[in-house]
Computed example of a mutant assay.
Amino acid sequence: MSSSRSGSSQGSKKPRASQKSMRQLIESLRSHRVNTLTELCRIERAAASCQNEEDAQEFQGPMTSAWDYYVTSHQFLTELRGLTRNYPFCGDIVTDAHFRVRSDPESNRSWNLAWLCLIKIQDDNLISSYAAVEASKPEMWGGRYPEPEESEQLAQCFEYEWSQAVAGMLRHWPVPPTWY
Rank of each mutant, 00 (worst) to 15 (best):
T84L: 02
N52C: 08
I43G: 02
E58P: 13
T72F: 11
C41Y: 03
T84P: 07
Q75P: 00
D55F: 02
A46F: 08
C41W: 00
P88Y: 12
N86Q: 08
A48P: 01
A56P: 00
W67M: 06
D68W: 07
F59N: 11
E54F: 09
S73A: 05
R42K: 11
F59T: 12
E54Q: 13
A48M: 14
C50T: 15
L40R: 06
A46Q: 10
D68N: 14
E58I: 07
E53Y: 04
P62T: 06
L80H: 04
T84H: 05
G82Y: 01
L80V: 12
E79N: 06
G82V: 03
D55M: 09
L40I: 13
A66S: 13
Q75F: 07
E54I: 11
T64S: 12
C50Q: 15
R85T: 14
I43K: 01
A66R: 03
L80R: 04
E79A: 01
T84V: 06
I43T: 09
T78E: 08
S73G: 01
R81F: 01
S49P: 01
M63V: 06
S73M: 00
F76T: 09
S49E: 15
L80M: 15
C50W: 00
T72L: 12
A47M: 10
I43P: 00
M63Y: 02
A66V: 12
C50G: 05
E79P: 05
R81M: 03
R85N: 07
Y87C: 03
L77W: 12
L40C: 11
Q75C: 04
T64Q: 10
Q75L: 01
A66F: 01
F59M: 14
S73C: 03
A46M: 08
R45Y: 08
G61E: 15
R45S: 14
C50R: 11
R81W: 00
Q60D: 13
Y87K: 04
R85G: 08
E58Y: 10
Q51T: 15
W67N: 11
G61V: 05
R81D: 06
S65M: 09
T78L: 02
M63L: 15
R45K: 08
N52Q: 14
L83C: 09
A56Q: 14
E44L: 02
Y69H: 07
H74W: 04
N86H: 07
Y69V: 01
S65E: 11
L40V: 13
E53L: 11
H74M: 05
N86I: 03
R81H: 00
L80I: 13
I43H: 00
M63S: 05
N52Y: 10
M63F: 05
F59Y: 14
W67I: 08
V71K: 04
S49R: 12
R45M: 10
E79W: 01
E54C: 07
T78D: 09
E58N: 15
G61P: 04
N86D: 15
E58S: 15
E44D: 13
S65R: 05
A66K: 01
Y69T: 06
N86R: 07
A48V: 15
A47S: 14
T64R: 07
N86F: 00
F76W: 02
A47D: 14
R85W: 02
E54P: 00
C50K: 04
L40D: 07
M63E: 08
A47R: 04
